[in-house]
Design a protein around this nucleic acid. Structure first.
Lengths: 180, 180
DNA sequence: TGAACGAAGCTAACACAGTTAGCCGACGTC
DNA sequence: GACGTCGGCTAACTGTGTTAGCTTCGTTCA
């Protein structure tokens, strides 16, 4: 369970579409990820996209795979990185989680908010990406609670839901202390 | 700060629109809350809605006010409800939070996910609704962390993001113990 | 009493979203 | 050489939020 699952295989053209889609997502935000916009960026007309992906959700599912893979990679290395790095596993996990999420906000939201198209995802990927929470806590329920805290912090920060201008490091610190 | 702020005043027609909108939201979900659908339900054409609300976001802001008011009310009574009820303030707060959120999932999401149109909200409402987290913890950073945990749990549960079929009570219990 | 005016409805229309139908050229295979 | 699939195209449909412009009704004011 410690090696990342392989992503769904795609033709080179499909892979190119996903890659361009990701660039749009990061550079222009989720609203810009439109079938027409995506098609134009890859050099075709919108309906032609449907020769490669059955629906927009399927394109998003491919992007979600990349998001989960990167997030999972960051969390696994953080948790398994031994005593060399500072703090216990919970602290390292939370630090890595926040950094990975804020590095690609749009991809993070796509991958973690809204319903998950599990049938379009590489098998085992979701479990693998979430495994570090169990590794850091040693208990399924605590893992879920810790995941909820981390996701809540990130999503509330991205949505600017905390009091405007408040420094969030103490809140992360409070959560870290409480869960460690 | 302990009495709920007054909501934005509205004409009777505008109030009716909001009330109908809320019914649609709860009975048919967020996707069904369409300007045409809403207008039809209230007995008019879609463009006529713009005589009462400048934009769909404004209608949603009115609904958000109701959501924040109800959520805040539930949290305040939970926190201020003395030793009569079981557990400490954190436990009572989290229990009330989950119950209020799951009672009206669509309204909860509208009120807590995505960017908040603060300029369209009754002044003080947001602060007041979030105050119970401070009252239960006595510390701003712990309050933010606890809020993040609660919101994360609810939103992940609503999005069915936990392993399918998992009982979430232990996770809530773990969070409760950790923050109490 | 009548003129003026604002509030609140209407229809028509626009731009843009995802998506479908149907056509067509290039390519590989029997 | 025929055939079929792959991957592109255009045209078009439905549904979204929203705007422009017209009308109608009730109120107000000279």
């Amino acid at each position: 369970m410690t090696v990342a699952p392989a992503l769904t295989e795609r033709s080179t053209r499909a892979a190119e579409i996903v890659s361009v889609g990701r660039r749009i997502l990061e550079e222009e935000g989720a609203d810009a990820l439109t079938m027409r916009r995506l098609a134009a960026a890859v050099g075709m007309q919108a309906p032609s996209l449907y020769k490669h992906f059955g629906t927009k959700r399927a394109v998003e599912a491919a992007l979600i795979e990349h998001g989960l893979l990167e997030l999972g990679t960051a969390l696994h290395t953080a948790v398994s990185g031994g005593a060399r790095r500072g703090g216990g596993p919970v602290r390292r996990l939370l630090t890595a989680y926040r950094a990975a999420a804020l590095a690609n906000p749009a991809l993070y939201r796509l991958a973690t908010a809204g319903p998950l198209p599990r049938e379009d995802l590489a098998p085992g990927l979701e479990d693998w990406a979430g495994e570090p929470f169990f590794l850091a806590t040693g208990d399924p329920s605590r893992a879920q609670a810790l995941f909820a805290f981390a996701h809540g912090m990130v999503v509330l920060e991205l949505d600017d839901r905390f009091m405007p201008g408040s420094d969030l490091r103490p809140a992360w610190e409070a959560g870290t202390r409480v869960f460690a």
